[in-house]
Design a binder for these strands. Structure first.
Lengths: 106, 106
DNA sequence: ATTATATGCAACTTTTCGGTTTCACAAATT
DNA sequence: AATTTGTGAAACCGAAAAGTTGCATATAAT
């Protein structure tokens, strides 16, 4: 089983779950109420999210509260970093081009 | 077919292809040389990347050069934005906590 | 003109994925 | 003690994905 964060966020339902529990910890039942699937399907998603450490649990009696392990999200951010560098370079090049054109107009 | 950027970057080979052609345009054959798969498999990945507009082609004779449509990568960046806000809030809270502790020490 | 090279596409196979159904178990409620 | 509630896990199913094989086409080289 692959189970990395990129595979985890590939599914739209999982992205929605992530967004949901980012704000506050929730039980599987409460999460499932927000979707058109069964509790079991949500439970399966939560297992996947847990497996790649995107989610943490806190047991309270028979209820289990799930919340987002927000630090893990930074892995995606780090991966994007290499492309952000390219954006910036391109932007600077464009910037230089524009100022060159400006100079020529004078 | 779903075909969104999150599904596209879920596959590790595709992420590698993206990183490769981000730096310079390459032909399918040249790309395939970097991996343990057949040219056809790479070709299929390129088609998927093209379908979700992550990649653009430029034909030169019988060769086709693929390069990254870097703007599209910003979609992931935008999605991360909501979590970045949470990071910053948490960070500020930690910051406040630390300065409170500092004050108490005095 | 013939051959080699670069590529895309379609058919097929195996694996993975997302969902449902069913069951088991533990905590809470009656 | 019996019942209800909250949950996880396994078995199964259909759909989609990833890879391989084979073929078609166009350009380049001989």
């Amino acid at each position: 089983m692959r189970r990395d964060i990129f595979q985890a966020i590939a599914d739209p339902t999982r992205r929605a779950i992530i967004a949901l529990i980012a704000l506050q910890a929730m039980t599987p039942n409460a999460i499932a109420e927000n979707f058109n699937t069964t509790r079991q399907a949500v439970s399966k998603h939560l297992r996947i999210l847990t497996e790649c450490e995107l989610v943490k649990q806190e047991q309270k009696g028979r209820e289990i509260y799930y919340s987002l392990e927000i630090e893990k999200m930074k892995e995606v951010d780090q991966w994007l970093e290499q492309f952000r560098k390219i954006w910036e370079t391109r932007f600077n090049q464009l910037d230089q081009l524009l100022s060159t054109i400006k100079k020529q107009k004078k």
